[in-house]
Simulated assay, not measured.
Amino acid sequence: MKAIILNGSLERRTESTSGRISQYFSEGLEKLGFQAEIFTLADSGIPLFDLSLTKTPLAVERMTQLFLDADVHFWLAPLYHGSIPGVMKNCLDWLEVTARHHPPYLTDKTVGLICWADGLQAIQGINTMDIIAKSLRAWPLPFSVPVIRTALFDHENPTKISSQYAYKFDQLINIAATKRIENSLYPVKPG
């Protein structure tokens, strides 16, 4: 099974918050037998959303195929001014090119949501991603992880995710994997 980790930050460094969380999810998923790919917006080359173009940009075609091929999605985003970064929303808007696919958009894809902020407001980013995922006909998991960034890393070993958040991330990974396995055993039949 395939999983995609959408790193919605423009950070490129592996030691950044988004890089460390992405790597944690990648390693956890691979332990469960998933083929995990990290999609980093900073390296994606996704242009500004423009449906008036006569040809879909190659970077968008690549992104779209990765999103459609993945059985499970994990969307990670920092909270910027009460929402997710605009570049992340722009990337997700490009999924409009799948509107005429059968099924369209991210129909029945499982999506786990993670957002971090310096304060207590990360849930606002989760809410934004939840609405977007549902609009794209995906199934956001009922368990998500809003993160207080100052508690994310272990105080004695700042390169390591704290035990509190490691537990929550592991829960999200396991719930997503279980949901995906159930869906493959008992697929929803089109009505």
Rank of each mutant, 00 (worst) to 15 (best):
Q164V: 11
T14C: 05
P190D: 10
S144W: 03
W94L: 01
A36P: 00
N7M: 11
L185P: 00
H102G: 06
D71M: 01
T159R: 09
T14P: 14
R20K: 15
T98K: 04
L48H: 13
L32T: 04
E11A: 15
D71F: 01
I148C: 03
R100E: 13
S9R: 00
A138F: 01
L141T: 10
G119Q: 09
A59L: 03
N90Y: 03
I123T: 09
D170T: 13
A117G: 15
L106F: 06
M1V: 06
T159G: 09
W75K: 04
H102E: 13
A177P: 01
G28F: 02
K109E: 08
A77D: 04
R20N: 02
R100T: 11
S16V: 02
P140W: 00
L48Q: 11
V147M: 01
T54F: 09
F67C: 04
F153E: 03
I84S: 00
G125Q: 03
S163R: 11
L58K: 13
K134P: 03
N127K: 11
N90Q: 08
Y105F: 15
G8D: 00
S18T: 09
E15A: 09
D118Q: 12
F49K: 05
A151L: 15
F34R: 00
N174V: 08
F74R: 01
D130M: 08
F169L: 15
G86H: 08
A166R: 10
S18P: 04
F143G: 05
R20Q: 10
M88G: 08
P158F: 07
V188K: 14
E30K: 13
S144M: 03
W139Y: 14
V97M: 01
